[in-house]
Amino acid sequence: MSSAGTETVRLDVDEGTGVAVVTLDRPGRLNAIDLRMAEELRALWRRLRFDDRVRAVVLTGAGERAFCTGIDRDVVVPQPSSPYMQDDPLLTVGPKANDLWKPVVAAVRGMACGGAFYLLGESEFVVADATAVFFDPHTTYGMVSAYESVLMAQRMPYGEVARMVLLGNAERIGARRAHEIGLVSEVTEEGRAVEAALWCARVIAGGPAEAVQGTVRALWAAREAARAPGFAQAPQLIALGNLPGGRQAELFARRVRAEPRIR
Score class of each variant (00 low, 15 high):
Arg10Glu: 04
Glu171Thr: 01
Val256Cys: 14
Gln213Arg: 11
Trp45Met: 09
Gly16Cys: 05
Phe50Leu: 14
Trp199Pro: 00
Leu240Met: 15
Cys68Glu: 09
Met143Ser: 13
Ala175Leu: 04
Arg261Lys: 10
Glu259Ser: 10
Gln248Ile: 04
Gly241Thr: 06
Arg53Lys: 14
Ala258Cys: 06
Phe135Pro: 02
Glu250Ala: 13
Glu39Ser: 11
Arg172Ser: 01
Leu240Gln: 15
Thr139Glu: 15
Glu39Val: 07
Leu219Ala: 08
Ser145Gly: 14
Val58Gly: 00
Ala128Glu: 03
Pro80Phe: 04
Gly168Cys: 09
Leu243Trp: 02
Arg36Thr: 02
Glu189Tyr: 02
Ala232Arg: 11
Glu210Asn: 14
Gln236Ser: 09
Met111Val: 08
Val133Met: 09
Val9Ser: 01
Ile173Val: 13
Gln213Leu: 02
Phe135His: 06
Gly18Thr: 10
Val108Lys: 08
Gly168Pro: 04
Gly207Arg: 13
Val75Thr: 15
Leu237Gln: 12
Met143Trp: 02
Arg257Thr: 13
Ser185Glu: 13
Ser81Gln: 11
Ala66Thr: 09
Ala205Cys: 03
Arg26Met: 06
Asn169Thr: 07
Val127His: 00
Gly121Asn: 09
Asp51Lys: 15
Glu148Ser: 13
Pro103Leu: 00
Pro208Thr: 07
Glu171Ile: 01
Arg36Trp: 00
Tyr147Asn: 15
Asp12Thr: 01
Gln233Lys: 10
Leu100Trp: 00
Leu120His: 06
Ala226Pro: 05
Thr23Gln: 06
Glu250Gln: 14
Tyr84Ala: 10
Val76Asn: 05
Gln236Cys: 09
Leu251Ile: 12
Ala62Gln: 04
Trp199Asp: 03
Arg10Ala: 04
Thr188His: 08
Leu48Pro: 02
Arg257Ala: 13
Thr140Leu: 12
Thr140His: 10
Ile238Ala: 15
Val133Thr: 14
Val212Asn: 06
Tyr84Arg: 12
Leu100Glu: 01
Val187Trp: 01
Trp220Arg: 11
Arg227Val: 04
Arg177Ile: 02
His138Pro: 06
Thr23Tyr: 02
Trp101Asp: 04
Leu219Met: 11
Gly61Pro: 04
Pro244Trp: 05
Arg247Gln: 05
Gly214Thr: 03
Val76Ser: 07
Lys102Asp: 00
Arg73Asp: 09
Val150Pro: 10
Ser149Ala: 15
Val75Ala: 15
Gly246Phe: 03
Ser145Trp: 08
Ser82Thr: 03
Leu243Cys: 07
Pro157Thr: 15
Arg46Ser: 13
Ala193Asn: 03
Val76Trp: 07
Ala38Pro: 04
Gly28Ala: 08
Gly207Cys: 13
Val203Cys: 12
Arg29Ile: 08
Ala249Arg: 14
Glu148Asp: 15
Glu64Ile: 08
